[in-house]
Design a protein around this nucleic acid. Structure first.
Lengths: 114, 114
DNA sequence: CATCAACACTTAGCAATGCTAGGTGTTTTT
DNA sequence: AAAAACACCTAGCATTGCTAAGTGTTGATG
């Protein structure tokens, strides 16, 4: 099938998923990509050129804030992202919205051919 | 919540939903907008500027073809869209993909905070 | 019967977002 | 020493939904 459709379906949930991962614990960019890949069983593989702009947007919107780690000898400095109260509140709403959507979509897709 | 997130979530399933409606019976543009609105309980309201480009894309991709109705006296001519074999096959794949996505997303969203 | 809403289709141009493809620099593996 | 992996950044492109405009018809409203 056309790869385009697959990509389009994935769009729109990336921000929610990233925020969801950050709800559990603060993470840095590269880590988020790996965690999402693992947790989604390889279904959601974010590209760096996709993730970083998402993080900057979330930060602009006040959903997260970032801090650079203080690396201990022979460690790279990493930029950690931390979810804010506003981010947690938004995540709850996103989750609700998602439940609604998926319920309705499933209904339409499985509906009888009347 | 930011309206942006809502819109983004809806993107990506519009084509699938339109194709699903056309699977039941041929329809014209305006009709599709109303049917989707009713079937989704007002959740998915396609704008004309969104739907028509979708239909043209589906047609370009060979998922549907269109025919103008021969209006009987005092009736407007309407452009009906009919799903093709290729469209039916793609719809099956889209449906499978959607099931996969929603399953994984729900898992991540509901997963324990480990 | 004039006006306005609803029906029905079309499209140019804008905004948002994911990706490509490049860049920088560090650490680990080979 | 070289290559791969880690970690971050970003300009520019492609796709897609929407705004806002246009055309023309039919039906309701006063």
């Amino acid at each position: 099938m056309n790869q385009r459709y697959e990509q389009q379906m994935k769009k729109g949930v990336f921000e929610m998923l990233v925020l969801r991962l950050l709800e559990s614990e603060e993470m840095y960019g590269y880590q988020l990509i790996n965690e999402l890949k693992i947790k989604s069983n390889g279904l959601f593989i974010l590209k760096e050129g996709t993730l970083y702009p998402i993080l900057y947007r979330l930060e602009d919107d006040g959903m997260v804030f970032s801090r650079w780690s203080q690396p201990k000898e022979k460690e790279v400095s990493r930029k950690y992202y931390v979810i804010t109260e506003s981010g947690r509140a938004t995540l709850i709403e996103m989750n609700q919205l998602w439940s609604d959507f998926s319920k309705h979509i499933t209904l339409i897709m499985e509906g009888n051919n009347e």
